[in-house]
Amino acid sequence: MNVKTNNVKTLSIEDLIIGQALLQVMQDKIKENGHEVPSELATDIKAISSELDERLQADRERQLKVLEMRRLALSTIDEKRARLDTEIAALRGKLGVTP
C-alpha cells in the first residue's frame, strides 16, 4: 500500500467527494489546454474514486442495517414502519440486494 492510498483511507466521505471533484476539474482543465494528463494525477483520481465507491457502498450497507434494526422494533407502528420500508427498499435498490 503506498502513501497516497494510506492518506485516502483516512479521509471522510465528504472530503473524498470534494477531493475527487477538485482533481477531476484539474484533469479536465489540463485536457482542455491540450496537455497530457500526468500519470500521478490519473493515479490519484483512480485511488480516490475507488476508495469513495468502496466507502459509499459500506456506508449504504451500514444505513441499511441500521434501518432494519429500527424497523424491527417498530413492528406495531404502521406509519413509521411504512416510511422505513420505503427507505429500506430504496437502499436495497442502490445496493442491488433482495430481502
Binding site: S12, I13, E14, E54, R55, Q57, A58, D59, E61, R62, K65
Partner: peptide, 13 residues
C-alpha cells in the same frame, strides 16, 4: 469489517 468501519467513520464525523 467494512460496515463496522463505516459506522466508526460516521461516529467520528
Amino acid at each position: 469489517d467494512p460496515i463496522l468501519k463505516a459506522s466508526y467513520d460516521a461516529a467520528i464525523e
